[in-house]
Design a protein around this nucleic acid. Structure first.
Lengths: 219, 219
DNA sequence: GCTATCTTGTGAAACGATTCACAAGGCATC
DNA sequence: GATGCCTTGTGAATCGTTTCACAAGATAGC
């Protein structure tokens, strides 16, 4: 299979969200053009994106909302549930742990870790359920035993790379990083980073160079 | 001036962070190759990125860490301070309000808003200082009066677009969006979105298509 | 001051993603 | 079942970004 661009995958996510919303509104059929408008792209782009994975529409008519929703869920690997551990029980980590959107979309938080003895043993609420914060010291053992699919990293920047190395060695294959550092991982490990500092600096740059057009775009 | 690609701006941020770290370690001179290694890119890329803005190095030698740091700060608009309002005092919003990294990098949170009467009037800690949550009902008036530079949006998805429209009408020119929706803004308004669902789905896709190489990349 | 060595800055080439444009297929109407 | 209208799926063209490759400038050693 041909390598799929990251930008394509992001758009597929966007299409899926819009499809789900359309289904709620009772729409049963949708054209690439409608899908494009909402995703801030073009109809040709939508069709090209989908064409990497097959042929999902009916010429002259468009796409059946239900069918395309299912297909996209399949493509994105959302037909199954993924288990997620949160590493770092600080402000951001605990806020994420309580984020309902995770569970709703099939990402189940199964454990929360911190290295601070003050926090270890404390109870945090994780999308309704109560979880006890575990000690990062035992994280390798836990990862080997529980085989979580994804680690969400919300630790201070200086601890991040070391932890990533440990997690990867213990078998983690996907990481969502919130630490404001550039992480290195072997290339069979999937990594996405959310870097608030970088986003703010992007806005700062845009504001400082207002005259030079080309803002307003998102990604 | 030529349009600068978003990817370029992101890398400039990364270079800046590494330069600051290098300065702390006492390094005074650095080559494009060293800068590249850490940022996960190539030396040619580093030089090309910088070349859009001028000529900062010495042939045969490299870049003076201090000078390049200052230049990048200038380019990114970080020489000045930016005022930031946080719209939505939920879990994520309050967690962000307390994030020290904002202040440290020149982004000063000046107000926090919510529409929930229960939350309005409550006191939240914002990087040390105490702030009273204000009512979103008055946000237009406040924005017109205080002219904040950037709005960080941490409201439920269904409220996001409406709020963006109000903020833009009131004069906001830069938005960092955490709501899991695709926002539309006029193209003189800078917008960046952080969409956790999208990032997780990207990881889900990568895990589901493991065999098809090309993971490990960031961004 | 000459030579060897190093690293920048930058056109040109290569690559990758997006957009164009249109043939092919499907539905509705008559 | 023929005609007109609509929208998909996709090769080809375009556009933008990254990588290559090398001349130019700077330093150090002799």
């Amino acid at each position: 299979m041909k390598r799929i661009a990251d930008s394509t995958v992001r758009r597929l996510s966007a299409y899926l969200r819009f499809l789900e919303e359309s289904a709620r509104r009772g729409v049963t059929t949708i054209s690439s053009d409608e899908l494009a408008k909402r995703g801030g792209t073009t109809s040709a782009q939508v069709r090209k994106d989908l064409s990497f994975f097959g042929s999902f529409g009916k010429r002259g008519l468009g796409y059946a909302v239900d069918e395309l929703t299912d297909s996209l869920r399949d493509i994105l690997g959302l037909a199954r549930q993924w288990s997620v551990i949160i590493v770092g029980a600080g402000k951001i980590g605990t806020a994420l742990a309580q984020y309902e959107g995770f569970k709703r979309r099939g990402f189940l938080v199964t454990a929360v870790y911190d290295r601070d003895p003050q926090k270890v043993g404390q109870v945090v609420s994780v999308t309704g359920e109560q979880h006890t914060v575990r000690d990062i010291a035992h994280i390798e053992r836990d990862v080997q035993r529980d085989k979580p699919d994804i680690a969400v990293l919300t630790v201070p920047g200086e601890d991040a790379q070391g932890l990533v190395d440990r997690l990867v060695r213990a078998g983690i294959r996907a990481i969502l990083n919130f630490a404001p550092v550039q992480l290195r991982v072997p290339n069979d490990v999937a990594l996405r980073s959310v870097n608030m500092a970088m986003e703010l600096e992007g806005l700062s740059f845009a504001l400082s160079n207002r005259s030079a057009s080309g803002l307003g775009g998102d990604r």
